[in-house]
């Protein structure tokens, strides 16, 4: 008996078997240029004055690229940390707890950072 590839592609028992694997690679590829942008932004603004940072993020291209780098980075790191957890944390309830905390931490970082970038960019 043969299983048609179309009916198994991307579907394990949980129906999203390969999503994390795929998104991990996709964000990795996107982060090659985006992390370079982020590094340049930080090198230029790391020791700058408050006004300079505000001015840099008032530029829409700069703000959107920094926000994109943060979002892609957090999505990427959330999956990476889950892989580490799955490798080293065995047995319930710790494995589940660690994965949930990983989600919360990642969500917190992305929400807080994007709020900051948006506020600075909109000049509020």
């Amino acid at each position: 008996m043969r299983t048609p590839l179309s009916s198994v592609r991307g579907r394990g028992s949980a129906k999203f078997g390969t999503d994390d694997y795929w998104v991990q690679r996709l964000t990795a590829a996107v982060l090659v240029p985006l992390s370079v942008v982020l590094i340049i932004f930080l090198v230029r603004n790391g020791a700058a004055s408050h006004a300079t940072v505000r001015e840099a993020l008032a530029n829409p291209i700069c703000a959107v690229l920094v926000a994109a780098a943060i979002i892609a980075g957090v999505v990427h790191m959330r999956i990476g940390m889950q892989v580490i957890i799955e490798d080293y944390v065995h047995g319930q309830p710790w494995s589940v707890l660690a994965i949930v905390l990983n989600w919360f931490f990642s969500a917190l970082i992305v929400l807080a950072s994007i709020w900051a970038v948006a506020k600075l960019s909109f000049g509020m």
Binding site: H50, V74, G80, I84, S113, A116
Partner: peptide, 29 residues
């Protein structure tokens, strides 16, 4: 893997720096 895990926790610094800038000049200083 180790650098990946370090970057994970290092995002706290990036978030802190951005938030302090968003809060105002005093927090940023």
């Amino acid at each position: 893997r180790i650098t990946g895990a370090a970057l994970y926790f290092g995002t706290i610094l990036l978030a802190y720096w951005l938030i302090s800038a968003a809060v105002g000049p005093k927090a940023f200083a």
